[in-house]
Design a protein around this nucleic acid. Structure first.
Lengths: 232, 232
DNA sequence: ATTACAGTGTGGTTAGACCACAGTGGTAAG
DNA sequence: CTTACCACTGTGGTCTAACCACACTGTAAT
């Protein structure tokens, strides 16, 4: 077993045993190195991995943002991983879109009316109406979809959904350039968003799921990314 | 931007541009360091991250297994990430089980009859009938579920499903100890597997999906892990 | 032809140094 | 007394230079 894996094991044990909780700080790199009788290099490699996993955040200096602190951001971590695999051509973009449809329709169907995430989603829609440029619109769009997914109350599904979105974010950005009429598309997307939210708020989960599926597939189809149709 | 992130960017670009393909070798660490004008330390931190992402595999010595070569194993990488987040108590096991149900029923519903993965699944079932100990049984069980998921032809869904399985593998192993009668459970699980495979092979996707959902939920419920019921 | 072995290049690991950064606390100027 | 300055401290970030274990390769001795 390699040295940095030993460090990883040790930190994972600290987490499992509850000796290290969310928001907690790891010992300094030098301290850990001495405690585990390994070089600082090996400690750093382990920390790098945890950072890539979204389990910790490393900050220089002193004060609240300093040191290596335990966080919980699986979404961005999974997103980076998927993005790299897309780069290797092992994960087709079509599969990612298809999975997004799967996860998001499931979430829309089970979204709980009355949770704060839905209120946030409604606010985001208002902001999107006023969005000046495409990038702002897309950023708000991403947050809307994440909020909707979170309303279902399954952290794994929200994290995975967010990561899928992130993995093809650049891709989506480029694709908007190919659209014939952004204003028309934007208007349509905003209308679809409101219809989805309305269906969710009327407790019509099945309708919401269908609308979400059509919404996502419609965008990528229009932008030129192939995607298989759903089973029904 | 930190130095190792620069190295990551460079490697990701090589992948995106196709200069580096699956099975290809990265330049030696010393060569990369000189080429990018950074220290070998920074190169190594980047490689560590890619390794954790399942994008490369590093091997010492010389020959076919030596050097840093591009692979595509998103499943184990995502699995490790999820496992760590489970350790932080940020991802409830129940959510993972629920997501597994979601992904696997979807895959069972869309599994394509005639693909080699289904033949492999059938063989695995035969081996499970002859499995001597629990660990062997569980290992074969895992492979069966992965094969079934792969039969749907969506690489992202299979990878995520496998990673979810892996994230709670230890957990599942411990839980089998709590079962009142392993022989009875094993017999039931094997019967359920055959029913699932039969439904898939009869092109009865809906039935297969229901059976899979009941199969997974049943196991974890019996083992004492809570899971919310499906919407229908 | 076979065997033994030095050579070569790979990642793995270490020690020790220096840097930028951001708070802390003492100190000198007002 | 207040204020402004600044050295101090501890954090992660980076670099250099060395050595190790490993696995193959070519060569030389048998």
């Amino acid at each position: 077993m390699r040295t940095h894996e030993l460090v990883l094991q040790w930190i994972e044990k600290q987490l499992s045993d509850g000796d290290l909780a969310l928001g907690g700080r790891l010992p300094g790199e030098r301290a850990m190195a001495e405690q585990l009788q390994v070089s600082r290099t090996s400690v750093r490699e382990a920390v790098r991995i945890l950072e890539a996993m979204g389990v910790v955040r490393a900050g220089v200096g002193s004060g609240k943002d300093a040191g290596t602190v335990v966080i919980a951001e699986p979404g961005s971590a999974l997103g980076s991983t998927l993005r790299l695999h897309v780069a290797t051509r092992h994960l087709p973009v079509a599969d990612i879109v298809e999975t997004r449809v799967l996860l998001e329709s499931w979430a829309a169907e089970r979204a709980k009316v009355g949770v704060p995430e839905l209120e946030e989603a409604a606010e985001l829609l208002d902001q999107m109406d006023a969005a000046a440029d495409i990038d702002t619109f897309l950023a708000l769009d991403a947050r809307f979809h994440v909020a909707l997914a979170q309303a279902a109350g399954n952290t794994v599904v929200s994290a995975m959904m967010a990561s899928l979105r992130g993995a093809i974010e650049n891709y989506a950005g480029e694709l908007t350039g190919n659209l014939p009429d952004w204003n028309a598309t934007s208007t349509r997307l905003r209308a679809e968003h409101r219809a989805i939210l309305a269906a969710v708020n009327s407790n019509d989960g099945a309708e919401a799921a269908e609308l979400v599926a059509a919404h996502i597939q419609g965008f990528y189809t229009e932008a030129g990314v192939g995607s298989n149709p759903p089973p029904n």
